[in-house]
Design a protein around this nucleic acid. Structure first.
Lengths: 121, 121
DNA sequence: CTTGACCTTGACCCTGGGGGCAGGGTTTAG
DNA sequence: CTAAACCCTGCCCCCAGGGTCAAGGTCAAG
């Protein structure tokens, strides 16, 4: 299949597929005319990458999952490296939430302060 | 004062100062040799920009605050537009926290799922 | 055979807030 | 006089692509 078909089946843009390739996540054959040729497995891979990116992983961090798939597993997340990646991402999200909660307090304080200053003038 | 002094006094890098200028937040005079010349007020402005950026505002969103300062106010956040900007940022942070909380649940579910799958094999 | 619709290719510029580096000119201290 | 420290502009880099372009390929209808 060609890039447009792959993109449509996996639910991403052609541009995204080419980007994944530039990141080393896909290595399509080339037809005689230079067009990229994809396998059915590539559809699974692209769907997986899309799902992982939507979870906030970077393209690089999807590597272990794709390797896991290519190693013949039905699921990309059953390999130890995938579990580690999940845990790392969860820790990252927790850290980020804590940061934002702190920031929220700061902002609320600043707002209150500024409002009061106006009231007392 | 020159860019290095300004940067040191405001606690930012020279590069950052030039970036703020490129975003229209500073308009320094030029000395005869081409060097940028800053006023004492610019130190206040840069400190304010730095503080606002650390709160997650974009350079563009600091505009109302800087205008407020330049209008002669002692504080950058006592103008109505600044209060509005604070409130918008708080709403943004709240939205982001909610997104991350949802994401956290998804990730934890995926992890549990993958772990169980391994256990049951 | 040609036209037109659609697909694909690579290449370039853009995002935000700068970091890093190159290759100059200027200033200041010793 | 010279070296260090400073300043200038301009370019490439990050991340995950989006937008747009010119050029060429493919496939059907006429």
């Amino acid at each position: 299949m060609r890039i447009g078909d792959l993109a449509a089946e996996a639910g991403v843009t052609v541009k995204a597929v080419r980007y994944y390739e530039s990141q080393g996540l896909l290595k399509p054959r080339r037809e005689a005319n230079g067009y990229r040729a994809y396998s059915a497995e590539d559809v699974i891979v692209v769907r997986e990458v899309k799902a992982l990116l939507s979870l906030g992983l970077t393209a690089e961090q999807t590597y272990p999952f794709i390797e896991c798939l290519r190693a013949g597993n039905d699921r990309a997340d059953v390999c130890p490296a995938s579990l580690t990646a999940y845990r790392a991402r969860i820790a990252e999200v927790d850290r980020r939430i804590a940061e934002l909660a702190e920031l929220r307090i700061k902002l609320a304080d600043l707002l209150t302060d500024a409002e009061n200053w106006r009231t007392n003038r």
